[in-house]
Simulated assay, not measured.
Amino acid sequence: MFLKKITLLHNKTTSKMDYPFSIPSIQSMTEVDLTERVTFFVGENGSGKSTLLEGIADLCGFNSAGGGRNNTYNVDAAESALSEHLRLSWMPKVTNGFFLRAESFYHFASHIDELGPSVLKSYGGKSLHEQSHGESFLSLFLNRFTGKAIYLLDEPEAALSPQRQLTFLRIMHDLVRDEDCQFIIATHSPIILGYPNATILSFDEGEIKETQYEMTEHYQITKYFLDHREKFLKDILED
């Protein structure tokens, strides 16, 4: 464990009408304690999980469009609106790590190509653009991710088939167990959420609170659909 606590600094200049404090979960946030090597952020789109993750990434010194501390490139609307209001508590602080932002990964891959073959070696030696989306994600996880680091991942399942999500779980497990890594992941995937002994923080219902795997909508809706597919589809598709 490296990052132990995330604190939101409220002050007189913050307005509940302005983004990101207009998001209920951010508005009500005070402190978030991190107690496990793997922490998941879950919630509906717009619930604030990616906003908080981007703020953490910015304070870690990672490019808020995706990358590590040494990746300097620009993507429109990639700046964090929250980081100046956050305080991170470390024990000890680490500088190694990476922020994966699935929606801007194309731009990151282009940035790596521009840096040339010597840098590509750290990503498997092959352009990320010359691989499928899923292959490029796995190349990143297998080659760029190393020990004593913190990894912030925003919807890593976006490019991964169910089988490759399972592969990712094994990669993450090895990094946590053998190489002293910490992960904070915003996800909608019930497969990835199933990682054992992780903390799951829900951003729904206007607050950030811990929940159990079986209590997440991701698990409940998926399970109900698989168990009652015909009834489920009839209920939502028929007038």
Rank of each mutant, 00 (worst) to 15 (best):
S139A: 12
F145R: 00
R144T: 11
F99C: 06
E130L: 09
L138Q: 04
A81P: 05
S139I: 01
I150H: 05
L86S: 10
G97D: 00
G116V: 00
F98T: 01
Y106W: 12
S132R: 03
L100W: 09
S118P: 00
S132H: 03
F141R: 04
G97Q: 04
Q131H: 08
F108K: 06
P92A: 11
K93T: 14
L128N: 01
G116M: 07
E84P: 02
L142I: 00
L88K: 12
G97H: 08
E135V: 00
H85G: 10
H85R: 14
T146D: 10
L140M: 07
P117N: 07
P117V: 06
L142P: 00
G97R: 09
V94C: 08
K121W: 06
K126R: 13
S127K: 05
S104V: 10
E103Q: 13
W90L: 10
F137K: 05
H129L: 14
L88Q: 11
E130F: 04
G116C: 07
K126T: 13
S83V: 01
R101F: 10
H133I: 00
L120W: 03
L86N: 12
L100Q: 05
L86R: 11
T95V: 11
H111T: 07
R101P: 06
K93P: 14
E84C: 08
G124S: 02
A149C: 08
G125F: 02
F99K: 00
A102V: 12
V119R: 13
I112E: 04
F98W: 13
H107A: 15
F137L: 11
N143W: 01
K148Y: 12
T146N: 11
L115V: 03
G147W: 04
F105C: 08
L140N: 03
N96T: 13
K126Y: 07
A102C: 13
F99W: 05
W90F: 15
A81W: 10
S132P: 03
E103M: 11
A149H: 05
P117Y: 05
H129T: 03
Q131Y: 07
L142W: 05
E135L: 01
S127F: 02
S83N: 14
Y106R: 15
G147H: 05
F145Y: 06
R101D: 09
L140P: 06
L86K: 09
G97W: 07
S118N: 13
H107D: 14
L142H: 10
R144D: 07
E130S: 11
E114G: 15
S110T: 15
V119W: 02
H85W: 15
